[in-house]
């Protein structure tokens, strides 16, 4: 009987300690967040709303270069409808676009034109490197092709394939939407818009 009593006592003290620890922890958290709660929650929520709006209305700039452009046009067509994801309005002027889908191989003569178009796009802007040639040079490892468009512009999503089917490109756009939403309201997103 003595042993059981001792065990009961030990358990009771342990439970009591845990309760005290938990209470301490909660008080600590309360103290940490009390000053900043109002501020971060408001801006984070607002940032999330802005991010949701941005991701659902990505306007691609027409930057079809080669074979991948055909699959990009197929994505905008009736079978794989990109309009469901908000990305149907292909703007011809880069000043009105926020997504540049580099679809096709970028040659040495085209690379400065690519950067110029990228610079003309207003912030926030994103780049999808569609296909193997814009991601890493593809099957063309030679003097004429830029081995990866990320040597000239920063890329957010790489979509592999030669050419990637429209369903793969839509998956890439969805991943970009997830990226926008995950970074929404954070410092990264605020720096983009600045």
């Amino acid at each position: 009987m003595g042993l059981i009593d001792q065990a009961v006592d030990a358990l009771e003290t342990e439970i009591g300690n845990l309760k005290l620890n938990a209470q301490d922890a909660v008080e600590q958290l309360d103290a940490d967040l009390s000053g900043a709660v109002y501020d971060t929650i408001l801006t984070t929520k607002l940032g999330k709303v802005i991010g949701w709006a941005q991701k659902n209305a990505l306007w691609p700039a027409t930057f079809g270069l080669a074979c991948c452009a055909i699959e990009m046009m197929a994505m905008a067509n009736s079978r794989w409808d990109a309009a469901r994801f908000g990305a149907e309005v292909f703007r011809a002027s880069p000043r009105q676009a926020d997504l540049m889908i580099v679809s096709g191989r970028v040659s040495q003569k085209m690379a400065p034109v690519l950067t110029r178009i990228y610079e003309q796009m207003p912030e926030p802007k994103w780049v999808i490197a569609m296909g193997a040639c814009s991601s890493c040079g593809g099957i063309f490892n030679n003097y004429a092709i830029v081995q990866g468009v990320d040597r000239w512009v920063p890329v957010d999503v790489y979509v592999p394939g030669c050419p990637p089917g429209p369903e793969a490109l839509i998956y890439g756009v969805i991943k970009l939407q997830e990226k926008i939403l995950n970074n929404a309201g954070s410092d990264k997103a605020r720096m983009r818009a600045a």
Binding site: R105, Q108, K109, F140, N142
Partner: peptide, 23 residues
């Protein structure tokens, strides 16, 4: 023109005939 120059003809000079077909 020349904004899409890929150097396929030169690359073809280093590949077997069967490998040139995808190019």
């Amino acid at each position: 023109i020349g904004y899409l120059h890929t150097g396929i003809e030169k690359t073809g000079e280093t590949k077997l005939y069967a490998h040139c077909i995808p190019m």
